[in-house]
């Protein structure tokens, strides 16, 4: 991926992220977040994580944000009328962010790995293909294409079978919880 694309999508992500915080209207905030997430998905793809990038768009930018919008519409929330800025909160929040960024940049400067570019760590299809046992993945790799979804699926179902069931259980419990929370009290 060309560098300017990275900068473009980074800018997209961060700028709309800032908009989420700054905009008064929740609907505008939600839509900004969608754009921000699309930028983020592009960054994922730039990191050869096609599957994650896809579900970032499908789940987050799609399903979750639609849910947000739906709730905002349902509750009929107006934009905050008074643009009263909570000065201590703003100063405190910005200070936190500043210190955090300073800390982060101090850490980032110190490590060799951080200075490597994507070109420095190219994917090694041949080496991977030789060790691969699953034939479809092997074929893909031999054709110099990354079967991203297949590899995630392989890792998911071969290494984390218990955890994925746990997640399933969590979703079920979440569903039940939502139903109970949303039920109106019948008097």
């Amino acid at each position: 991926m060309p560098a300017f694309l990275f900068y473009f999508f980074s800018f997209l992500t961060l700028f709309f992220g800032v908009l989420v915080v700054v905009l008064r209207n929740p609907v505008a905030s939600a839509l900004s977040l969608v754009v921000s997430f699309v930028g983020l998905a592009a960054l994922f793809i730039s990191l050869d994580a096609y599957f994650i990038g896809t579900i970032q768009i499908l789940v987050y930018a799609g399903a979750v944000m639609v849910l947000f919008l739906f709730i905002i519409m349902l509750l009929d929330i107006k934009a905050e009328e008074s643009a009263k800025v909570n000065a201590p909160a703003v100063i405190g929040g910005l200070m936190l962010a500043l210190i955090f960024i300073v800390q982060l940049s101090l850490v980032l400067g110190e490590h060799e790995l951080g200075k490597k570019t994507i070109a420095d760590v190219p994917l090694q299809y041949e080496a991977a293909a030789q060790k691969e046992l699953v034939t479809t993945i092997k074929t893909d790799l031999e054709n110099k294409s990354l079967p991203d979804a297949k590899l995630v699926g392989k890792a998911l179902f071969s290494r984390y079978p218990f955890q994925i069931q746990l997640i399933g259980g969590l979703l079920l419990v979440g569903t039940i919880g939502v139903v109970i929370l949303s039920k109106r009290e019948v008097n």
Binding site: V18, V21, S46, I101, L108, I118
Partner: peptide, 21 residues
Amino acid sequence: MVSLNHYLLVSGLLFSIGLVG
């Protein structure tokens, strides 16, 4: 070129924006 630090910095900024929010 784009290095790992770039990505991490973007990530940190995004996190900070969220925190401030």
